[in-house]
Design a binder for these strands. Sequence first.
DNA 1: GTAGATGCAAAGTATTTGCGACAAG
DNA 2: CTTGTCGCAAATACTTTGCATCTAC
Lengths: 135, 135
Amino acid sequence: MSETIEQKCLAKGVKLTDQRRVIAQVMSKSSDHPDVDELYNRVSKIDPKISIATVYRTVKLFEESGILAKHEFKGGKARYEELNEGHHDHLIDVKTGEIIEFIDEEIENLQKKVAEKYGYKLVDHKLELYGIKKK
Amino acid sequence: MSETIEQKCLAKGVKLTDQRRVIAQVMSKSSDHPDVDELYNRVSKIDPKISIATVYRTVKLFEESGILAKHEFKGGKARYEELNEGHHDHLIDVKTGEIIEFIDEEIENLQKKVAEKYGYKLVDHKLELYGIKKK
DNA sequence: GTAGATGCAAAGTATTTGCGACAAG
DNA sequence: CTTGTCGCAAATACTTTGCATCTAC
């Protein structure tokens, strides 16, 4: 495991409060991609006094600090995950909603090439695959 | 040019009303990717009596009928474009918001391969590149 | 001590919906 | 005719914000 979220906050000069610590810990433990509501539920079990406004403010702050990644998958609410070294994309099961993380260097390179072709420097991208499980 | 939106409606058994005809024509003429508000503005210039609720209902209906594609680019409202034969993805200029459409067969194939690898049949995907124009 | 964080409730956006009037097939 | 559509305004869902209070550094 690389740095904890708390360490990242220190490194980036993000002030640590009790609320932020709780939110950070819950996100670290979450291997799925919770939306704000779900995150708020989990956080509330640890400290019921934390308000949903703080959860919204904190995920936004963490996202801007490069600590969390925000995803807006099809037709739903925004969902978050901890951002670690290895970049990855998502394969979403359209039946169950299950999410599989994957990495494909070849696709990454091709994306860069496409951007170059049009005279752009690639600064970000979003790749989501939607599939049905084969029997 | 392939079929018009009106022809597609007939083909798919979607009832044609004056309002839908206007919305269809405006979308056909739009080479950008307007959001509902912008579409409503354009539509209102032709027939000011059309309500925004109808615009919302119509784009949703057209999307479900495979006539329009809905995009949810980063942090904004949903945007729409006419869906024609050739599938394409989008390269978005993060400075200006300009959108370039592109096709890359190689990436398409690799996506299918990734899904296969995890035992999935690819039914849909979303690929968005965000870039900065090089000088 | 001070700048910034929190909780609360109210305000914003974007989108959907119930309902009576109306129009397409 | 009958089923589905429209316009309107109210409702919903998600997210942000003003303000007074509190807390980390």
